[in-house]
Design a protein around this nucleic acid. Structure first.
Length: 291
DNA sequence: ACCACTACCTGAAGGC
DNA sequence: TGCCTTCAGGTAGTGG
């Protein structure tokens, strides 16, 4: 599910039911997701007010009044659902908040009850997601999950000059380099494929051949594709939903992703989309117009 | 230091 | 119907 546009869609959905509210109860239904939850996780969350909900790359960051920040990653299958009304089964009773509606849904691993009676349900079938806490005062350096990240692709620090520098000398294919969160933070498999198609750059080209005119082409199309996807509410491939259940619709705008053996959408190109595997991930591209 | 590859986990989809 | 294989939006860790 979640690359930057999907995470941003989730952030926008959660923001009104998290910011300024207190985490009254936190149900942690298993000891770990991808990693173990931190010590005393529930106790450190309960009673805290969420002062702001931010996104950094594909991470959601809930800043807490007590000086810690809750870091959340959706992995491949993580999703948040907002449930407004508590079920009839005494959700106000301490200990009875495991699931608001009682319809035990598999893989509902973490449930927050916020002040105002709203439940936030984190469901993650594959458990590649994770949550942890770190000291807010330390900033990005306070957690290894953030400390090595490259710039936000929609921010000012992401520029052709930055890309030139980050890609210089790299012998890995540009496709893999753009998936490296140290180069630029937030791209995933879909948007890298789409951006390379827009820039007319072959995914097989070595990263070190990009600096210069190709970087200058790449930076604006990366911004464009992410902005368009955010506007579309992200991409729904099989199960991504916003917190209110809305489906993303950027998948209808794909030029190459998932379109193997279909015609290239570039006018006059006449090529066919092909698929290859790079670093264990599918790459979709048009060999005719991507050089 | 770089880079490629595997592991982590479940579920959906396709072939037989 | 059911069993088997393959594939999936990510990233930490390992080993060459």
């Amino acid at each position: 599910m979640p690359e930057l546009p999907e995470v941003e869609t989730v952030r926008r959905g959660l923001s009104p039911v998290m910011e300024g509210r207190v985490i009254e109860h936190a149900a942690i239904n298993r000891p770990n997701l991808r990693f173990a939850f931190p010590d005393r996780f529930r106790e450190r969350l309960e009673g805290q007010t969420v002062t702001a909900l931010d996104r950094r790359a594909k991470y959601l960051l809930a800043h807490l009044s007590g000086g810690e920040t809750l870091l959340m990653h959706l992995g491949m299958s993580g999703r948040f659902t907002i449930v407004d009304e508590a079920g009839e089964s005494g959700a106000n009773t301490p200990g009875a908040y495991s699931h608001p509606a009682g319809d035990q849904s598999k893989h509902d691993h973490v449930i927050f009850r916020m002040s105002g009676g709203v439940f936030l349900i984190f469901n993650d079938a594959r458990r590649f997601g994770f949550m942890t806490l770190f000291a807010s005062a330390g900033g990005d350096e306070a957690t290894p999950f953030l400390s090595g990240l490259g710039p936000e692709p929609l921010g000012n620090a992401f520029s052709p000059a930055h890309l030139d520098c980050a890609l210089a000398g790299k012998r890995t294919p540009i496709k893999s380099a753009l998936l490296d969160q140290r180069v630029v933070a937030g791209l995933g498999n879909i948007y890298v494929c789409e951006a390379l198609w827009r820039a007319g750059i072959s995914p097989k080209r070595l990263a070190r051949t990009i600096p210069g005119t190709r970087s200058a082409r790449l930076v604006p199309v990366i911004r464009d594709v992410l902005n368009e996807a955010i506007t579309a509410g992200g991409t729904t491939l099989r199960d991504f939903k916003a917190t209110d259940g809305a489906l993303g619709y950027f998948q209808h705008s794909f030029a190459v992703y998932g379109r193997e053996s279909e015609p290239c959408r570039k006018p006059e190109c006449g090529g066919t989309v092909s698929r290859l595997v790079q670093a264990g991930r599918s790459t979709f591209f048009c060999a005719a117009c991507q050089r």
